[in-house]
Write a protein that binds this DNA or RNA. Sequence first.
DNA 1: CATAAATGTGTTATTATGACGCAATGTACT
DNA 2: AGTACATTGCGTCATAATAACACATTTATG
Lengths: 251, 251
Amino acid sequence: MLKDIIENNQNYQPGLSIDCVIFGFHDNHLKVLLIKVPRSTKSSLPGGFIPIDQDIDTAAVTVLNSRTGVEGVFLRQFATFGKISRNDQHFGKNVLEYLKIEEEKGKWLTQRFVTIGYYALVDFLKIIPNPVNHDEIVEWIDHKEVPELILDHKEILDKALDTLRTELNLMPVGYNLLPEKFTIPELQKLYETILDKKLDRRNFLRKITNIGILTKLDEKKSNVAHKAPNLYSFDKEKYDEVLKNGLTQGW
Amino acid sequence: MLKDIIENNQNYQPGLSIDCVIFGFHDNHLKVLLIKVPRSTKSSLPGGFIPIDQDIDTAAVTVLNSRTGVEGVFLRQFATFGKISRNDQHFGKNVLEYLKIEEEKGKWLTQRFVTIGYYALVDFLKIIPNPVNHDEIVEWIDHKEVPELILDHKEILDKALDTLRTELNLMPVGYNLLPEKFTIPELQKLYETILDKKLDRRNFLRKITNIGILTKLDEKKSNVAHKAPNLYSFDKEKYDEVLKNGLTQGW
DNA sequence: CATAAATGTGTTATTATGACGCAATGTACT
DNA sequence: AGTACATTGCGTCATAATAACACATTTATG
């Protein structure tokens, strides 16, 4: 796969890549989709290269889709990373030798790569992690337990989370991360996880319902300990409207 | 200059450029620094290419500095643009012929370029617009009177303004755009211009002073019609603190 | 059947916001 | 010189948003 790309590097945008931070929410934990290559001790964000005949946004959708199988999800560009040292030595001579790539073509790969970061919010349950290469492991990792990552991928991940945290003040979040029916405590837990702080139960309910994007269902969650919480769903129409216009701003 | 870059294109990141939206504020109007090339009917944003041995942020500072002569200003990356059609036909055969560039090397330039957008906030009065090429005209244009721009530069400019508008809710703005001493009505006008809406005088004063970044000076503006407004300055220490921690957020 | 842990639904005090009143200041015109 | 006018400075008041907290309800568990 990588060898194919290098051999046909004239079909790809040189020196430019895409990395996706794919967020999911499951079991009240925020998860990130990571790739593990057996020969390496470090994990990485799912990424890819950009065909010269594709918009970068389209290429990002392709990366996301090829890894998760989902379509039509929330995907947003958040930053571009281009320190000169960011991929020093990453594809060293040994890797090129291993892949049987001649030095001249290897230059395409070993130059400094600038990478465009996208973050995605996906429904954990609809995802089928898909290893593009046979020896890869694609897995969900709790965002609090992210192992050492290659290159500057940790920085990219942190920036994605920071962006998401900021955007929580500008837009509603949840439609893409929660199942069709969910409870307020689940939604609150999502907010708390992203913000990394506790929120007051009662104030959260008031504020989130005031946005006007929730529909209270005549149904309670089953098989739970203690009092069964009510189920809600998003009013997609109003949700999209608020997404488009943004939450009420300060000025 | 452009010819030099193409001739030595191995020294530059291929297929990648930087474009800067440089905002200034003067005479109660928000201005944008634009480049006009005499032979072209369209203007453009000041931009440049990325030396392979420079961080992209550094390259952006270089672009800004070479155009305006200022250093240490507010510069922020806001988005990356990479539609495949974005520079179709921009450097056509005629341009290459004009620059006497052989076809093979011209490919470096005529491929799809992805551009990284940065926006800067600068003190209008400290700027010395500097044409890098002898036949360029560098000028401040009122943001409401921006002429037709090349490529997708209008889209880039709009996105920059939109980002600035959003960030007004997250951080204080003004230190980089106003002179040392300024009046509240001037600061309000800046906010109104960016937000493109009228604000109430009295409520604005209350809200802006509550942030705690202003120092009221014992001095009034001179040579003004009507009642002379008081002068203020920013408390740089507190300003930077708020910039770092952000304005109080919703959640 | 009492307990523990969670949910549903409030109240209250404080603060922030939006809409507006009015006096003070300084220019410009008669 | 005196008055009209635009603009600033400093308020008020009603309403909305927020933070902190109280209490009853539901349901698994021992």
